[in-house]
Structures are given as C-alpha cells and as structure tokens.
Nucleic acid binder design. Structure first.
Lengths: 209, 209
DNA sequence: ACTGAATCTGGACGCCGTAAAGATCATCTT
DNA sequence: AAGATGATCTTTACGGCGTCCAGATTCAGT
C-alpha cells in the first residue's frame, strides 16, 4: 500500500525532504520576502517538524546556501543565453549586464540571499569564479573578445571586476523608489537600465552623442 | 543631591537615553557586527531594561534608522572634505569615489545598516538626495563642473546614478576575499580601488595607456 | 506640595534557531 | 522470513529575540 515516490503520497519518511525544503524556501522567498524566511516557516511550508531540516542541513545558513547556489546557477544560465543571442561583441557585453540586472530586478529576494550568504563567508561561492561559463568568466571572456589588443592579465581582472561592480551597484539601486521618476521619464525599467549602462565606461563608451 | 547631568551619575531617569542608545548601538555595531545588533543587546549595553528603548523609538527599525542617519551624515562630511581638498575637477570626482568606498571599507557594518534600513522603506533617506552638500548632490554638482558643455538634466541624473552605482558596487565587493589577490598584486586596498575606478567611464576615461 | 505626564522596570507572549531523546521505517544481514 | 541497523522524523525543551502591558519611579508645572 505505497504507490511509488509520487508527489501525492509520501513514499519514504518524506521522500526527498532536502529538495522539498529548498523548494519551500524559494516559494516563501518569492511570496513573503527574505525577512520572513525562517527555518521553522520553511519546515512548516514543507509540512514537517521544526527539527526535521537538521537531518539535511547543518543549520539555517546551509539551507540558504543551497538556495543561493541554485540562484547563481540560474543567473549563469541567463547570462549564457544573453551572450549567445548576440553576435557583435559589444552587444554581448551590454546584454550580459542587462541580463544580470534584470535577474536581480525580477528576483530581488533571491538576489539578496545570494549575496548575504557570501557576506558571512566573506567570499562568493567558488563556482561563480570557476573555470567555464561561470558568471565572472563570461564577463571576462567577453571583455577579452571586445578588448583592443592583448590585455595585461591584471588589467583584465580589474576590468572584469569593474564591470561586475557596476552591474551589482545598479542591481541594488533598483530596489529604491528614489529612481522611479528617472525610470518613468525614460519609459520604463529597461530604458533606465541601458541609460545608466551607457554612462559606464565598460559597457560601450558613454557620452551618447 | 544630584550634581548636574554628568556622565558618572545619572541625572534624570537616565539622562539622555536616546543618545545613549544610539551610541551603544554604534559601539556594538563596530565590535560585534550587524548580526549581533539586537535591541535587547543595545539596551543591555546602555544599562537599561529591554523595554526602555520603546519610550524613545517606535521599534527596532527606528533605532537603526537613527544610527543609519548619523552614518549618512558622516559620509557626507567625508565627501565634502574630499571634494574640497582637490582643485582639479577631475581629481574631485575620483576623490569623491575614493572617499565613498573608503568609508564603506572602514565602517562595513555601519554601511550595511545604512542600506538595509533603506531597503525596507524602498527609498534612501531624503537628506541623501537633499538640496545642498548631500552625497548625491555633491556627485552631481561635480559632474556638472566636469561635464563638457551643458548637459541634459536627465542625462545628468543618469550620469550621477551611474557613478553612485559604480561606487556602491565597488564598496560591496570589498567584503569578499575573492579580490584579495588583486589587491595584493596592486599593492593594497587603495591601489585596487583606483585601478577599478580607472575602468569606470565616469571616473576618468579608462584605458590607462 | 500635589497632580499629571514622562520615563523606566518586571513579567509575559509568541516567535526564532538549535539540541537531545525517543519513535518510525527502509534496508541489510543472516 | 526475522531481526538488527541506521537513517529519518517528531516531541520536547532551552535560551534569545521583538514587543506589549501593568506597575513603579521621577520629573515638571501648578
């Protein structure tokens, strides 16, 4: 009397509680924001006791790490798409920036968790800087393509960091109504986004004229 | 038998508890970081009961707001100094950026509180954008001085926002060890800071050569 | 000096993260 | 097939948190 590991009827003790907890956390994050994301609430949402998560995560931080990890993966995917959908190198770089900020705008709570987790450990997750297709490497590689001539390795890292900083700064500013009048005047979020990027040296030279 | 409102002997019920609470919060913030900053801990540090703060602040958020406000004031001062200590407009702009990021680096916990408070209200405190000598206005005015010819009002706001985003992004990145090897290679925090700024169009044209 | 309002304390409530001990159930051994 | 083993989940509990309320204390205006 136990029909497979379906969604309806719990197969094992719970099935795959680890997965269910991460999903519940993501659901709560979208619905209630980062402040409402307590371990107990996640357990409640997943339908288990408050102590159950401790069999799958060392503590609350490790659950958030898992959520953040999936956030970075999603961001990497979006940036890969953005980069692939343009042929001109200069368009690629801007597309990367736009994809980055758009992700932050569309998933503000998740974006916040991604950086908050890193803050405690004082370093971004390894796979953000890892070998291939990581967000950082995509920016760097695109900068190489766009670069006029061979670049100093150090100079390249500086430029990548600069682009990252610029995108992150813009992503954070999106949370503040302070800039709404600018967005409206320019005709929406995306126009505002491109407008700011145009003023940042890394993303296509500025001075609009 | 009550000798004035000295520091030693509590004059009134406490003296100026509001002031004492803000000071205690700042002290705890520096010593233990933002996560340790509970309302109870602040009350403890100030030597009063856990409920005492509620006669001076609506809730915990309002206390943090007060701390954040003083943080912005300090930042404004530092930027005013930085701007005044350079005569060339281009140096002024870079000096503003350096002062901003240096403030964030030297007071990471306070810097975090300043933005976290704003996040909940979805807008920065008014006096950041206010008439004179606010951080935002100083950047904007310096951009006007540096700008080639008269600038569109909208364009000016975009440029100011771009500079702000860039500085904020860089300020946040300082928390991550990820960039330590770059800092070391360049010979310290300040060199790293200037290196990144050089790659941001707003702060002096990039391309180092 | 008396009254009213402001300020502080003590205790309580419901939340939180986390730990320990006991119950339940799949799997492995024989 | 039966029982041992270990993973998974629940119950209970502890201390800390933000916040409210009822009482005590002290200031300020009359």
């Amino acid at each position: 009397m136990r029909e497979a590991a379906a969604a309806d009827n719990r197969p094992y003790h719970h099935g795959d509680l680890r997965r269910a907890l991460i999903d519940a956390a993501q659901r709560l994050l979208e619905a209630e924001g980062p402040t409402a994301l307590s371990l107990r609430a996640v357990a409640r949402e997943a339908g288990v006791s408050p102590a159950a998560p401790y069999h799958h995560f060392k503590d609350k931080g490790e659950l958030l790490d898992a959520v953040a990890h999936e956030g970075w993966d999603l961001l990497n995917e979006l940036m890969t798409e953005a980069r692939a959908s343009h042929s001109l190198v200069r368009d690629k770089l801007t597309a990367l920036g736009v994809a980055y900020v758009r992700f932050a705008r569309d998933n503000p709570a998740l974006y916040r968790v991604m950086y908050d987790c890193s803050r405690d450990k004082e370093s971004l997750p390894e796979h953000v800087h890892a070998e291939n297709d990581s967000a950082y490497c995509q920016v760097r590689d695109t900068l190489v393509e766009a670069g006029a001539g061979p670049m100093d390795e150090q100079e390249l890292e500086l430029a990548t960091t600069a682009a990252w900083c610029a995108a992150h700064g813009l992503a954070e500013m999106f949370a503040f109504k302070q800039f709404d009048h600018l967005k409206d005047a320019l005709g929406g979020d995306d126009a505002f986004l491109r407008g700011v990027f145009e003023h940042m040296g890394i993303f296509g030279k500025a001075h609009h004229g």
